[in-house]
């Protein structure tokens, strides 16, 4: 349990059975009245934000949140199998939890997964992943100066704009934070 004086920006708390994070926090105290803690709270499952004011006597649930470092093994239909490198335990995550991240997985890629009551709700990939281009229009030789892009599909099915000089079979680096092309690996 947290008390109101533990509250701060960035703290994860549990509200009505859902893991939430405090995104804004302010101490207020009306004259001769009690101390109040005004918080803006984001539900980590739904992404929805609400304002909530706590009194100093209020108790706030601590969410049972656990972060685990796993590595990607293989996919079985809509299920993605990861392994805990310390215990060799297998962990299966659904496509709904992974979102587009599922298209950027490569074998043995390390990922960090956040669980709430053993239910995974957030997966973060390394900032950059390397993928081979499987489909794109033939490259325009010498055109490395312009910002013109063309569509490409990489292994795993992720589709993104790439520069004109990229060819099928090229290995490229993708920034997983914005999903954009970051460079060609020579």
């Amino acid at each position: 349990m947290y008390t109101a004086s533990d509250l701060r920006k960035g703290l994860k708390i549990e509200i009505e059975g859902a893991p939430c994070i405090i995104t804004d926090f302010q101490f207020v105290k009306p004259g001769k009245g009690q101390a109040l803690y005004r918080c803006r709270i984001k539900n980590l499952f739904t992404g929805a934000s609400v304002e909530r004011t706590f009194r100093s006597v209020d108790k706030i649930d601590q969410p049972n949140v656990e972060e685990r470092d796993l590595v990607y093994s293989y996919a079985e239909g809509d299920h993605y199998v990861f392994m805990d490198p310390k215990t060799y335990e297998q962990v299966t995550l659904g496509a709904d939890v992974l979102g587009t991240a599922r298209l950027l997985l490569t074998e043995d890629l390390p990922v960090r997964v956040v669980f709430f009551n053993d239910r995974a709700f957030e997966v973060s990939l390394p900032n950059f992943v390397e993928k081979r281009v499987v489909t794109t229009e033939p490259g325009a030789r010498g055109d490395t100066a312009t910002n013109v892009m063309k569509p490409a599909i990489v292994e795993g099915g992720y589709e993104l704009p790439v520069p004109l000089f990229i060819n099928e079979g090229d290995l490229i680096r993708i920034d997983t934070r914005d999903g954009k092309y970051d460079g060609r690996i020579n």
Binding site: V28, P30, G33, Q34, L36, R38, T53, R55
Partner: peptide, 8 residues
């Protein structure tokens, strides 16, 4: 309680 919360 209601007084302080509604005031703020």
């Amino acid at each position: 309680d209601r007084f302080d919360l509604d005031l703020v």
